[in-house]
């Protein structure tokens, strides 16, 4: 059993402590917005925030995440008010297939909370998620739109 605080809610889950957080979120807490892409912290599809830091949840165990504040894509908006990254993604039609975009959005949200006006170099350094559809151009444009708002 483990207690995880996800999106402000406490989940008591029947899960072994060494289970990757990704699978506890998807299968035990039932929040499928966080995606499985590689399982080895390469692609970033599983990115969530742990204490506000963008983290690849496939590479973190449940025991490491216990007691920490976890935010997934489902918890990014404040009630009905979308996060500015979600708003920009909708306004600029960023996603193609969309599978990597939960992780991409979480990574960008973390970058913007740290650096509200990131340079291209900041973006290059912080956003390392794989997108096989190739939405990078729209991702970069949307980040700059948010930063200049």
């Amino acid at each position: 059993m483990a207690n995880l605080t996800i999106n402000g809610k406490t989940f008591t889950l029947d899960v072994e402590p060494d289970t990757p957080l990704l699978w506890a979120i998807r299968e035990n807490a039932g929040l499928t917005g966080t995606k499985y892409g590689c399982g080895i912290a390469q692609c970033g599809a599983c990115t969530v925030h742990i204490e506000g830091v963008a983290t690849r949840s496939c590479g973190v165990s449940v025991s490491e995440a216990e007691g920490k504040k976890i935010t997934t894509i489902e918890g990014l908006a404040s009630g009905d008010t979308l996060h500015k990254v979600q708003e920009a993604w909708i306004a600029q039609d960023v996603p193609q297939c969309g599978y990597c975009q939960s992780g991409m959005i979480m990574a960008v949200a973390a970058l913007l909370s740290e650096k509200p006006k990131p340079t291209d170099a900041d973006i290059d350094e912080a956003i390392t998620n794989i997108c096989r559809c190739g939405t990078f151009q729209q991702v970069r444009e949307a980040i700059h739109t948010i930063a200049s708002a």
């Binding site: 929040l31 499928t32 894509i73 489902e74 979308l82 993604w89 909708i90 996603p95 969309g98 959005i105």
Partner: peptide
């Protein structure tokens, strides 16, 4: 596009998400 919103909030269901 007609399918963007659910791709930004975790609501879009892909095959891997079927329950």
């Amino acid at each position: 596009r007609l399918d963007t919103v659910d791709k930004t909030n975790g609501a879009m269901i892909y095959g891997a998400d079927i329950k």
